[in-house]
Amino acid sequence: MTANLAPIVMLASEGGSPELIKVDTLPALTAIVVFLVAFAFLAIFVWPKIVKGLDDRNNKILGEIRAAEAAQAKAKAAQAEFEKRLEEARAEADRTVRAARAEAERQAEELRATAAKELEDMKNRATQELEGAKRAAISEIHAMAAGLATTVAGKILKREIQPGDQKRLVEESLSELSSR
């Protein structure tokens, strides 16, 4: 094994102290030429593809983010619009309910007033009718009383009383009765 490794030892130690910095422009020129050629190749065939690929993906991601933000803004606007309309609908419903309630109260009041008026009218009519009936009854009673009195008086006086007398007597009696 050691014999096999001998060349490596020689490789490392050959020539005493190795020259760490050696002026030789050949490696420098090789590095310059090779790098410039490699750079030209990469600049033409490699970096445009990579940069475009990264830009495409970046734009895609940005586009997706912007679309998502737009969709979110749209959804928020739609939600705000919905809530606004819901609020308006609630307010409209409240107004409608209030108006219906007011109308119902107004109609109830009207019905109440109408009923009360009709009741009052009926009462008045009944009162008038009662009064009329009372007067008629009284007149009838007066008439009957007058006829009866006349009959009784005629019998007493034995004298026939004419219809004109009878009528006059009735009116006098009535006026006396009224004055009492």
């Binding site: 490596i8 490392a12 130690s13 005493g16 190795p18 760490l20």
Partner: peptide, 11 residues
Amino acid sequence: ASGDNPLGHVV
């Protein structure tokens, strides 16, 4: 494995 001078491996 290097020999007497490690720089020999590097230069």
